[in-house]
Amino acid sequence: MDYSGYSDAELFGLLREKKPIAEAAFAELYSRYATRIYNYCRTILRNKEDAEDAFQETFAKFYQSAQQEREMTNLPAYLLRIARNTCLNMKRQRRQEIVSFDEEYMYPTRDDPDREEMLKLIETAVELLPDDLREIFILREYQGYRYAEIAQALNISEEAARVRAYRARKQVQKILAPYIKDFAQHM
């Protein structure tokens, strides 16, 4: 069964059907959004094992929630909200523990060492942002979510999302100020 032409809302409705249909619909939704959710979990949790747990949990909750009839207007934002809550809960649980960071996440291999270092700098600067700004920055800059999706996932207005993203970028830029000039000259 090819569900690639179906809308998100139609596929969401099919999740309540019999198992083969539900599985095919789920597979189509998974192919559309799994990468974004996976990257979101990796970015937020920064630990591969935790991120994979959160990722699994997100899709499990999503599937369970689909068993109850509900109107689905913005599925990516809905999935993101589930992922966000799952990751935040996991972070709260881990807060007291010393979590080993995923080196491969922190410093993934890239061909261009300058750009790699620039990304590394941005990633470390993002870690210094207050939670609300960091979240917006990750969603917007790393995950590429639209402001409408971010607004719905975070339950804020689009304008508020836009302003927070601006503040986040501004703050990152200031944190990197001592180094960014050098990079600007090299790149």
């Binding site: 996976y38 990796r42 750009r115 620039m118 941005i122 970028r169 990152v172 990079f183 600007a184 790149m187």
Partner: peptide, 16 residues
């Protein structure tokens, strides 16, 4: 600076 940051961010590794 923003152009530089944006360019770097666009080239980030996307993981499946």
């Amino acid at each position: 600076h923003l152009v530089l940051m944006n360019r770097s961010l666009r080239e980030q590794v996307v993981r499946t």
